[in-house]
Amino acid sequence: MTGTYEQLQQCPQTGISRSDLNFEERSEVRAIQVKGTSGLSQTNNPGKFTDVFYLDGEEKAAAETFAAENAALLEQLDLSARNVLQTSLARELYDLILDASGRRDIERYPTVVVETHEDGTQWVINRDRYETRVDRRYTTSETGSARIPGETSLHDIYESLGDTITEANLRNTTIAGDVRQVLDYYRVSSTFECVPVTTDDQQLAVRKRTQATQS
């Protein structure tokens, strides 16, 4: 076993060379390297990122190391647009790095993903869309995504509405986009005591298990 491999067994590393590893060890080593994608314009690229090497299966630890080593550059990325990190890395690593860097808080549920951004804005996105259409996550002009502005929150909206929360109720709030994703979030999150229902006029809705406080 080489000394470099022993270092990688302890934690992800920067500044190592694959040539210091033997053949079998190299087959287990992965790297986070940000180089962009050939043929794509590399706009939204703040500079040269430090590479991080790690053993297969240690993606979360590698993302945390990468976020710490490249904190200043990550702060400069415009995450609302296509960026060099996104075009260089697999989706799973991209999301792990954003989570580790604090640029986004990501909560995953079976059918939806909730992201809270630095400015307090929240996005509720259909999980399939989130995982398969990375460059179309943040839009309110298509089904599958909803945006909640930073001056309020999903919890505040839930508490402000009555015993039954319908699609129409949510459309009358500050939520933009596909409000059905928000209903789905209320349904699957353990934070909210509610059950899914359908109204007489065939709207999707959730009904709170406890009575809403009447003012």
Results as ranks from 00 to 15, higher is better:
10 Q>C: 07
62 A>G: 10
64 E>Y: 04
53 F>W: 14
71 A>G: 07
62 A>R: 05
9 Q>A: 11
88 S>W: 05
14 T>Y: 02
81 A>N: 13
9 Q>C: 13
76 Q>S: 08
41 S>A: 14
123 W>I: 00
23 F>N: 07
79 L>T: 08
124 V>F: 00
64 E>D: 07
72 A>T: 12
16 I>M: 15
22 N>V: 11
103 R>S: 15
106 I>Y: 01
85 L>C: 13
9 Q>V: 12
92 E>Y: 13
121 T>M: 10
42 Q>I: 13
73 L>H: 08
79 L>F: 15
61 A>I: 03
103 R>Y: 11
2 T>H: 09
106 I>C: 01
74 L>T: 01
22 N>W: 09
84 V>E: 02
84 V>Y: 01
36 G>D: 06
93 L>F: 06
94 Y>K: 03
48 K>C: 10
128 D>K: 10
29 V>E: 07
75 E>Y: 04
104 R>F: 03
136 R>M: 13
133 R>G: 00
118 E>I: 06
60 K>W: 04
116 T>D: 02
14 T>I: 07
76 Q>Y: 06
91 R>P: 10
132 T>M: 06
104 R>C: 08
11 C>F: 12
111 T>Q: 13
39 G>C: 10
132 T>P: 03
100 A>R: 06
107 E>P: 04
34 V>K: 08
22 N>T: 09
85 L>H: 00
17 S>H: 14
87 T>S: 15
125 I>C: 06
90 A>W: 09
137 R>F: 03
98 L>F: 07
102 G>S: 00
6 E>L: 15
28 E>I: 03
102 G>H: 00
112 V>K: 00
77 L>R: 01
4 T>F: 10
46 P>Y: 04
74 L>F: 05
106 I>T: 01
96 L>I: 05
30 R>T: 07
66 F>K: 02
49 F>V: 01
32 I>G: 05
52 V>N: 03
23 F>D: 09
78 D>E: 04
74 L>A: 01
17 S>W: 11
24 E>S: 12
115 E>F: 02
10 Q>D: 11
91 R>V: 14
101 S>N: 04
107 E>M: 10
69 E>F: 01
56 D>H: 13
74 L>V: 05
21 L>P: 00
97 I>N: 04
43 T>N: 10
7 Q>I: 06
131 E>H: 01
89 L>E: 05
86 Q>A: 14
70 N>W: 08
56 D>C: 11
87 T>I: 15
113 V>I: 14
79 L>W: 15
20 D>P: 00
91 R>D: 14
19 S>Y: 10
70 N>A: 05
25 E>F: 00
110 P>L: 03
3 G>W: 11
